[in-house]
Protein backbone atom coordinates (compact mmCIF):
# COMPACT_ATOMS: atom_id res chain seq x y z
CA UNK A 1 0.00 0.00 0.00
CA UNK A 2 2.99 2.39 -0.07
CA UNK A 3 2.12 3.57 -3.61
CA UNK A 4 -1.28 4.52 -2.26
CA UNK A 5 0.26 6.61 0.49
CA UNK A 6 2.55 8.31 -1.98
CA UNK A 7 -0.37 9.02 -4.27
CA UNK A 8 -2.38 10.44 -1.39
CA UNK A 9 0.43 12.71 -0.25
CA UNK A 10 0.98 13.92 -3.81
CA UNK A 11 -2.73 14.65 -4.15
CA UNK A 12 -2.82 16.47 -0.82
CA UNK A 13 0.21 18.58 -1.70
CA UNK A 14 -1.38 19.51 -5.02
CA UNK A 15 -4.51 20.60 -3.15
CA UNK A 16 -2.61 22.65 -0.59
CA UNK A 17 -0.57 24.30 -3.33
CA UNK A 18 -3.72 25.14 -5.27
CA UNK A 19 -5.41 26.71 -2.29
CA UNK A 20 -2.36 28.74 -1.29
CA UNK A 21 -2.18 30.30 -4.76
CA UNK A 22 -5.68 31.68 -4.47
CA UNK A 23 -5.00 33.34 -1.11
CA UNK A 24 -5.06 37.09 -1.21
CA UNK A 25 -2.30 39.34 0.01
CA UNK A 26 -3.98 42.78 -0.24
CA UNK A 27 -5.09 44.76 2.82
CA UNK A 28 -8.71 44.83 1.81
CA UNK A 29 -10.89 42.80 4.18
CA UNK A 30 -12.56 39.95 2.36
CA UNK A 31 -15.81 38.75 3.87
CA UNK A 32 -17.22 35.32 3.16
CA UNK A 33 -20.96 34.72 3.17
CA UNK A 34 -23.30 32.10 1.78
CA UNK A 35 -25.96 34.03 -0.08
CA UNK A 36 -28.64 31.38 0.30
CA UNK A 37 -29.93 32.02 3.82
CA UNK A 38 -32.71 34.59 3.74
CA UNK A 39 -33.28 36.96 5.40
CA UNK A 40 -29.71 36.94 6.72
CA UNK A 41 -27.80 36.59 3.48
CA UNK A 42 -29.20 36.13 0.01
CA UNK A 43 -28.68 37.07 -3.61
CA UNK A 44 -31.30 39.51 -4.89
CA UNK A 45 -32.77 39.70 -8.41
CA UNK A 46 -29.86 41.86 -9.53
CA UNK A 47 -27.39 39.23 -8.40
CA UNK A 48 -26.21 41.28 -5.43
CA UNK A 49 -25.71 40.08 -1.87
CA UNK A 50 -28.33 41.39 0.53
CA UNK A 51 -29.62 40.63 3.99
CA UNK A 52 -29.03 41.27 7.67
CA UNK A 53 -25.53 39.78 7.70
CA UNK A 54 -24.51 41.80 4.67
CA UNK A 55 -25.88 45.06 6.12
CA UNK A 56 -24.13 44.37 9.44
CA UNK A 57 -20.86 43.59 7.67
CA UNK A 58 -21.08 46.81 5.63
CA UNK A 59 -21.78 48.84 8.79
CA UNK A 60 -18.83 47.22 10.58
CA UNK A 61 -16.52 47.94 7.65
CA UNK A 62 -17.62 51.56 7.64
CA UNK A 63 -16.93 51.84 11.37
CA UNK A 64 -13.49 50.27 10.93
CA UNK A 65 -12.79 52.54 7.98
CA UNK A 66 -11.88 49.48 5.99
CA UNK A 67 -12.56 48.57 2.41
CA UNK A 68 -14.52 45.32 2.26
CA UNK A 69 -15.22 42.87 -0.47
CA UNK A 70 -17.77 40.08 -0.28
CA UNK A 71 -17.05 36.56 -1.41
CA UNK A 72 -19.89 34.11 -1.93
CA UNK A 73 -19.08 30.63 -0.65
CA UNK A 74 -21.15 27.48 -0.26
CA UNK A 75 -21.96 26.87 3.38
CA UNK A 76 -20.37 23.48 3.96
CA UNK A 77 -17.01 24.71 2.68
CA UNK A 78 -17.09 28.10 4.39
CA UNK A 79 -14.79 27.31 7.36
CA UNK A 80 -12.24 25.42 5.18
CA UNK A 81 -12.27 28.39 2.78
CA UNK A 82 -11.61 30.81 5.65
CA UNK A 83 -8.71 28.65 6.83
CA UNK A 84 -7.40 28.54 3.24
CA UNK A 85 -7.42 32.39 3.27
CA UNK A 86 -9.96 32.79 0.51
CA UNK A 87 -11.41 35.47 2.78
CA UNK A 88 -10.66 36.92 6.20
CA UNK A 89 -13.96 36.82 8.06
CA UNK A 90 -17.21 34.89 7.87
CA UNK A 91 -20.32 37.02 8.32
CA UNK A 92 -22.90 34.39 7.50
CA UNK A 93 -25.04 33.77 10.60
CA UNK A 94 -22.53 31.37 12.05
CA UNK A 95 -23.36 30.02 15.49
CA UNK A 96 -20.59 30.23 18.06
CA UNK A 97 -19.96 26.66 19.25
CA UNK A 98 -17.16 24.86 21.05
CA UNK A 99 -16.82 22.50 18.10
CA UNK A 100 -16.17 25.39 15.72
CA UNK A 101 -13.94 27.19 18.21
CA UNK A 102 -11.42 24.38 17.74
CA UNK A 103 -11.03 25.50 14.14
CA UNK A 104 -11.70 29.26 14.12
CA UNK A 105 -11.84 32.31 16.38
CA UNK A 106 -15.12 34.14 17.03
CA UNK A 107 -15.98 37.76 17.76
CA UNK A 108 -18.64 38.61 20.32
CA UNK A 109 -22.13 37.75 19.16
CA UNK A 110 -24.00 40.09 16.83
CA UNK A 111 -27.33 38.37 17.27
CA UNK A 112 -28.92 35.49 19.19
CA UNK A 113 -30.92 32.62 17.82
CA UNK A 114 -32.88 29.57 18.81
CA UNK A 115 -33.15 26.38 16.81
CA UNK A 116 -36.72 25.20 16.27
CA UNK A 117 -38.74 22.41 14.71
CA UNK A 118 -41.13 23.29 11.87
CA UNK A 119 -43.75 21.03 10.31
CA UNK A 120 -47.13 21.02 8.56
CA UNK A 121 -49.94 22.89 10.33
CA UNK A 122 -52.30 20.70 12.28
CA UNK A 123 -50.10 17.61 12.37
CA UNK A 124 -48.75 18.53 15.80
CA UNK A 125 -45.86 16.06 15.79
CA UNK A 126 -44.42 15.66 19.25
CA UNK A 127 -40.79 16.81 19.13
CA UNK A 128 -39.56 14.51 21.88
CA UNK A 129 -37.30 11.60 20.99
CA UNK A 130 -40.24 9.15 21.03
CA UNK A 131 -42.43 11.50 19.01
CA UNK A 132 -39.80 11.81 16.28
CA UNK A 133 -39.08 8.10 16.05
CA UNK A 134 -39.02 6.97 12.42
CA UNK A 135 -39.64 10.50 11.12
CA UNK A 136 -37.78 12.15 8.29
CA UNK A 137 -36.04 15.23 9.70
CA UNK A 138 -34.24 17.77 7.54
CA UNK A 139 -31.49 20.26 8.31
CA UNK A 140 -28.76 22.09 6.49
CA UNK A 141 -25.41 20.29 6.40
CA UNK A 142 -22.69 21.66 8.68
CA UNK A 143 -25.04 23.57 11.00
CA UNK A 144 -25.66 23.30 14.75
CA UNK A 145 -29.07 21.87 13.86
CA UNK A 146 -27.44 19.09 11.79
CA UNK A 147 -24.95 18.25 14.54
CA UNK A 148 -27.71 18.10 17.10
CA UNK A 149 -29.85 15.80 14.95
CA UNK A 150 -26.93 13.50 14.18
CA UNK A 151 -25.91 13.26 17.83
CA UNK A 152 -29.34 13.04 19.50
CA UNK A 153 -31.69 11.58 16.93
CA UNK A 154 -29.41 9.87 14.42
CA UNK A 155 -30.35 6.44 15.73
CA UNK A 156 -34.12 6.81 15.90
CA UNK A 157 -34.99 9.09 12.98
CA UNK A 158 -33.95 9.48 9.34
CA UNK A 159 -31.76 12.59 9.18
CA UNK A 160 -31.53 14.29 5.79
CA UNK A 161 -28.87 16.94 5.29
CA UNK A 162 -29.06 19.55 2.53
CA UNK A 163 -26.54 21.85 0.87
CA UNK A 164 -28.72 24.90 1.46
CA UNK A 165 -31.64 25.75 3.75
CA UNK A 166 -33.63 26.64 0.62
CA UNK A 167 -33.31 23.09 -0.76
CA UNK A 168 -34.29 21.66 2.62
CA UNK A 169 -37.39 23.88 2.63
CA UNK A 170 -38.36 22.53 -0.82
CA UNK A 171 -38.38 19.00 0.57
CA UNK A 172 -40.47 20.09 3.56
CA UNK A 173 -43.05 21.55 1.16
CA UNK A 174 -43.21 18.48 -1.08
CA UNK A 175 -43.60 16.15 1.89
CA UNK A 176 -40.31 14.27 1.70
CA UNK A 177 -39.59 15.65 5.16
CA UNK A 178 -41.90 15.32 8.14
CA UNK A 179 -40.20 18.08 10.09
CA UNK A 180 -37.43 20.62 9.67
CA UNK A 181 -34.93 21.59 12.35
CA UNK A 182 -33.49 25.02 11.69
CA UNK A 183 -32.79 28.51 12.92
CA UNK A 184 -36.00 30.00 14.36
CA UNK A 185 -35.47 33.43 12.79
CA UNK A 186 -34.86 32.02 9.32
CA UNK A 187 -37.95 29.84 9.60
CA UNK A 188 -39.94 32.77 11.06
CA UNK A 189 -39.30 34.60 7.77
CA UNK A 190 -39.98 31.50 5.70
CA UNK A 191 -43.34 30.82 7.39
CA UNK A 192 -44.47 34.17 5.96
CA UNK A 193 -43.85 33.04 2.36
CA UNK A 194 -46.43 31.34 0.11
CA UNK A 195 -44.73 27.98 0.57
CA UNK A 196 -44.35 28.46 4.30
CA UNK A 197 -47.97 29.40 5.00
CA UNK A 198 -49.02 25.79 5.52
CA UNK A 199 -46.38 25.19 8.18
CA UNK A 200 -45.86 26.16 11.79
CA UNK A 201 -43.41 25.88 14.67
CA UNK A 202 -43.56 22.74 16.80
CA UNK A 203 -42.62 23.28 20.42
CA UNK A 204 -40.26 25.92 21.73
CA UNK A 205 -36.77 26.88 20.68
CA UNK A 206 -33.51 25.32 21.72
CA UNK A 207 -30.37 27.28 22.41
CA UNK A 208 -27.55 25.24 20.89
CA UNK A 209 -24.90 27.94 20.69
CA UNK A 210 -23.49 31.05 22.34
CA UNK A 211 -25.14 33.33 19.82
CA UNK A 212 -24.10 34.16 16.31
CA UNK A 213 -20.70 35.70 15.70
CA UNK A 214 -18.14 36.55 13.07
CA UNK A 215 -15.55 33.85 12.47
CA UNK A 216 -11.93 34.75 11.79
CA UNK A 217 -8.76 32.70 11.65
CA UNK A 218 -7.47 32.04 15.16
CA UNK A 219 -4.22 33.92 14.56
CA UNK A 220 -6.02 37.05 13.33
CA UNK A 221 -6.40 38.50 16.85
CA UNK A 222 -6.07 42.09 15.58
CA UNK A 223 -8.95 41.74 13.12
CA UNK A 224 -11.07 40.08 15.80
CA UNK A 225 -10.42 42.96 18.22
CA UNK A 226 -11.27 45.54 15.56
CA UNK A 227 -14.49 43.74 14.68
CA UNK A 228 -15.47 43.52 18.36
CA UNK A 229 -14.95 47.25 18.76
CA UNK A 230 -16.98 47.92 15.63
CA UNK A 231 -19.82 45.71 16.90
CA UNK A 232 -19.86 47.73 20.14
CA UNK A 233 -19.83 50.96 18.16
CA UNK A 234 -22.78 50.10 15.90
CA UNK A 235 -24.69 48.84 18.96
CA UNK A 236 -24.04 52.15 20.72
CA UNK A 237 -24.83 54.59 17.90
CA UNK A 238 -28.13 53.06 16.79
CA UNK A 239 -26.89 51.69 13.45
CA UNK A 240 -27.50 48.16 14.66
CA UNK A 241 -31.07 48.91 15.76
CA UNK A 242 -31.82 50.47 12.39
CA UNK A 243 -30.63 47.35 10.55
CA UNK A 244 -32.47 45.11 13.01
CA UNK A 245 -35.72 47.03 12.44
CA UNK A 246 -35.36 46.63 8.68
CA UNK A 247 -35.71 42.85 9.08
CA UNK A 248 -37.44 42.07 12.36
CA UNK A 249 -40.04 43.95 14.43
CA UNK A 250 -38.28 42.76 17.62
CA UNK A 251 -34.69 42.90 18.81
CA UNK A 252 -32.63 39.88 17.85
CA UNK A 253 -29.48 40.92 19.68
Amino acid sequence: MTWLKTAMIALALALVGGLALTANAGDKIKIGTEGAYPPFNLIDEKGELQGFDVDIAKALCEKMGAECEFVKQDWDGIIPALLAKKFDAIVASMSITDERKQAVGFTDRYYSNLIRFVGPKGKAIDTSETGLKGKSIGAQRATVAASYLEDKLGKVASIKLYDTQENANLDLVNGRLDVMFADGLVMYEWLKTDDGKKFEFYGGGMSLDDGVGIAVRKEDEALKAKLNEAIKAIRADGTYDKINAKYFPFSIY
Partner: peptide, 16 residues
Protein backbone atom coordinates in the same frame (compact mmCIF):
# COMPACT_ATOMS: atom_id res chain seq x y z
CA UNK B 1 -15.82 17.57 6.83
CA UNK B 2 -18.82 19.40 8.26
CA UNK B 3 -17.73 18.27 11.74
CA UNK B 4 -13.94 18.25 11.39
CA UNK B 5 -13.26 21.11 8.92
CA UNK B 6 -10.57 18.98 7.31
CA UNK B 7 -11.45 18.94 3.64
CA UNK B 8 -7.94 18.08 2.50
CA UNK B 9 -7.73 14.96 4.65
CA UNK B 10 -11.21 13.74 3.79
CA UNK B 11 -11.25 14.55 0.09
CA UNK B 12 -7.77 13.00 -0.26
CA UNK B 13 -9.09 9.82 1.35
CA UNK B 14 -12.24 9.81 -0.77
CA UNK B 15 -10.16 10.55 -3.86
CA UNK B 16 -7.82 7.66 -3.08
Amino acid sequence: IARTYMPIELFAMAGA
